[in-house]
Design a protein around this nucleic acid. Structure first.
Lengths: 199, 199
DNA sequence: TTGACACCACTGCAAGTGTAGTACTACGTT
DNA sequence: AACGTAGTACTACACTTGCAGTGGTGTCAA
């Protein structure tokens, strides 16, 4: 079993590409080797089985999905308005579009998790923590809306991202700009008396 | 090329089961034969290629997803309240749970569509029509909320169904009853003056 | 010099496809 | 009622493909 971390990561990144391009059907050691540009047999040396490869791919996607700290910080200088939440949702969409392969791979993994309990455990962990952090971030930052707001945005944005990944034309009648703005507005709910009087 | 429609349908239903159970990776003529309980080679006689099989599976899922007319009619006797919309969303969830294989197969097809333009065209068609019909139904039935309400519910329920299919434990902290009720309530938005005065 | 890794080639295996051939059934014909 | 034909079910097989795993050799660095 080889230990060279850089090469292992390169192989995992290649595996993500393969997953996105050919689906789990196309995920073989050979394909990973080829796409990583390393000699045939290399992936065999780094992963004992396809299952282990998949497990490590899941971990790697988790790393790749983490947003850049500095950008978030910059965004959060703005006042806590609904527009700011809308902007955050747009940034999520942009992040996805800049790394479609990872999101597609994630989707493949979701399906794979249907058949692999241990993989499902990993994914449940990833998504749960993601949701928990989103809620904490939202509330700590004093953004408008409550916990349910965040959960609803999580669900609606999931639906939107998945549609955009797989059947983009379904939503073309509804321009994302207004769609997301309305989504945010309604997910937050009516302005309560307190907040309204302050603005 | 065999024409026996009953058998063809049986094979397609078997293919849906295979897709749900083993993913697109496991979808082979052999697997379909085995699960349909017919002799090896039968699927070969009915479909010229795996591609054609997949295309016909897409059509078949479309048929299987259509809700039963009578049940809808019964539900729609109730007054046009937010609770009624909530009930409709619950019925959607129930329908999915009673036929997980079809929904899982649909998800597999979504991913497959990423690589097959002609399949994507079919799916875009299915989902677009589904959404259009939902909107028409909602507005014609004079249910509370506007067009955007329906789109938002479509997105949020997509996210919810997919999470429930693949990583159900993520949403366990948020009981579906209250989650869906709130989702509906916010997707509809604030009661406008007119409607409020009528109730 | 030794150990870890890159590279390469070969063997063997497993799976699946497609087809050819046979048997059965139903239906129409004379 | 015997026959013929068409469509289909069933079976078996040959052929191809593609992958996994391993062992051997080269290479670099400590």
């Amino acid at each position: 079993m080889r230990q060279n971390l850089a090469r292992r990561t390169a192989l995992l990144d290649a595996a993500i590409e393969v997953l996105a391009r050919d689906g789990s059907r196309g995920l073989t050691f050979r394909a990973v080797d080829a796409l990583a540009g390393v000699p045939t047999g290399t992936a065999s040396n780094y992963f004992t089985s396809r299952d282990e490869l998949i497990a490590q791919v899941a971990q790697r996607t988790r790393e790749r999905l983490t947003p850049v700290e500095s950008e978030v910080r910059r965004t959060m200088r703005a006042p806590r308005t609904r527009d700011l939440v809308t902007l955050l949702m747009h940034q999520l969409l942009d992040r996805m579009r800049q790394d479609r392969p990872t999101y597609l791979a994630m989707l493949e993994l979701r399906l794979e998790a249907t058949r692999r309990p241990e993989l499902r455990a990993v994914l449940v962990d990833v998504f749960s923590e993601n949701l928990r952090e989103s809620i904490k971030f939202h509330l700590d930052a004093d953004l408008p809306g409550d916990e349910t707001t965040v959960v609803l945005l999580y669900l609606a944005m999931s639906g939107l991202l998945i549609d955009d990944l797989t059947v983009p034309d379904v939503l073309t009648p509804y321009p994302y700009d207004t769609l997301i703005a309305t989504m945010v507005d309604r997910a937050i709910g009516p302005r309560d008396a307190t907040r309204q009087s302050l603005t």
